[in-house]
Design a protein around this nucleic acid. Structure first.
Lengths: 253, 253
DNA sequence: CAGTGGTCTAGACCACCAC
DNA sequence: TGGTGGTCTAGACCACTGC
């Protein structure tokens, strides 16, 4: 069909290498030929090979490292099912939805509480909570791992007048977690909204998630509303977009 | 905080230009200084400027064109709310959810039916329908525009034994659209599942959507199940990831 | 036609890693 | 120490646009 232009050289090289990786010619974990070698093979300069590999790196297919060569990634896509995440029965198993999702894939989950305390609300969280940026909120920031490798960041924010002096300020939020405590406090979450966007990672996010700045992250902003319509919590998830798929289910109405 | 490395030059240049665009120093629709001029200003070669602009292009901030210069994009983010899309009351307004979403933003929607007929099921659609790849299905492929500019592709697939000889094969599916006809045929959709992923566009998608191959698309695969648990339709939406946000809402259970 | 951005070459210097 | 990938320069040719 394409009567018009052939692709530029660096895209052709990327396409060939991509296909060879997908066909298993280069197995996950193995090291590609060096850039000078590939330059010889394709009869281009190393600049062209470097640019081609940058494409595959951005797609999450390979991981070039100085001094070590370019290794082929294993890319198990992790599915995240939103509908089941806030269900009481799942919560009250003790272990969270993140744990269940990873175990289903045979991965070993770990979740560290990196920060908990009172902070000024950042703009995005404030907007989701319907309060002014800079107002006091409780932050609970978590760093999540699969088989020891970082895969997700999640920060919960709760208005300070709700969280102050409660178990939400403790490291351990107790049986059933944050939502159960909100329920105890008379702020039972009734309605959930998730907004999904995609953007480049910040420098900090890229560092923790082991990403390139040219890659993309999913940003999921979940707002929990109580029966009164008040936003009682917002949780912002950040994860590499090429590593996750998101599932939502609902019934006809 | 960053005690360590300063960013490479092309990222610094990109960061400066990004900020200047966001601060309004370069208004949407205006043309940036040429690459040689920017190279002079930042005291780097044109290669570095070119690479910096490639970053902004990938982010959808800017659109370089040969011979014409690099123009600043207007980027109204379109929100897509899944929960309200399949509601009967919305459907039966006659105009679809896509129309409503765009009109809310003051944009003029248009939707063209680009293809309708019997085809062999592509792999992704077949998997979602739970049938073998290559089995006969009805395809309804639509191309969608906002103010005349392409913003989305959507292809519906219905198993051929359901669609054959029905109004679904016609250009106009009638009042209430495809889901209403499925209901008439005894296959009322009861449960919807959407799976969201992100990937580079295919060459064809990039051409239609006016995208660069380094940008990213949302792929939303929605499966409609009847009461019997059979997948009666799957619709695959493709849209530029930097131009859309996706919203899902549900109640506690 | 002159000026734009897209691509490529040839060569260089560097930080980093394994040996 | 030699090889790796990351970045940059200087220069070139090209397709395309607008005049």
């Amino acid at each position: 069909m394409p009567i018009d232009a052939p692709q530029p050289g660096f895209r052709q090289v990327a396409a060939v290498l991509r296909r060879e990786i997908q066909e298993g010619k280069f197995a996950p974990g193995s090291v590609l030929p060096s850039e000078p070698e590939l330059a010889d093979r394709f009869e281009v300069t190393r600049s062209v090979v470097n640019r081609a590999l940058a494409i595959l790196r951005t797609e999450g297919l390979v991981r070039p490292q100085r001094g070590r060569g370019t290794t082929v990634n294993e890319i198990p896509v992790i599915n995240r099912n939103a509908a089941t995440r806030q269900r009481r029965d799942v919560r009250e198993q003790g272990r969270g939805a993140f744990d269940a999702e990873l175990r289903r894939l045979g991965l070993e989950p770990r979740s560290d509480l990196a920060q908990v305390g009172r902070v000024d609300a950042p703009a995005d969280a404030a907007e989701a909570l319907g309060i002014e940026a800079g107002a006091a909120v409780l932050i609970r920031r978590r760093e999540m791992y699969a088989n020891g490798k970082p895969v997700q960041l999640a920060s919960s924010f709760v208005p300070w007048d709700i969280a102050e002096g409660t178990q939400l300020e403790q490291e351990d939020t107790g049986q059933g977690g944050l939502y159960s405590r909100l329920t105890d406090l008379g702020h039972e979450p009734k309605e959930f909204t998730e907004v999904v966007t995609v953007r480049p990672p910040t420098a900090e996010e890229a560092r923790f998630l082991g990403m390139d700045e040219d890659q993309r992250v999913f940003v999921i902003t979940r707002t929990a509303q109580s029966a009164g319509g008040r936003a009682v919590e917002v949780c912002i998830h950040v994860m590499p977009a090429h590593q996750w798929s998101l599932t939502y289910t609902w019934s006809a109405s």
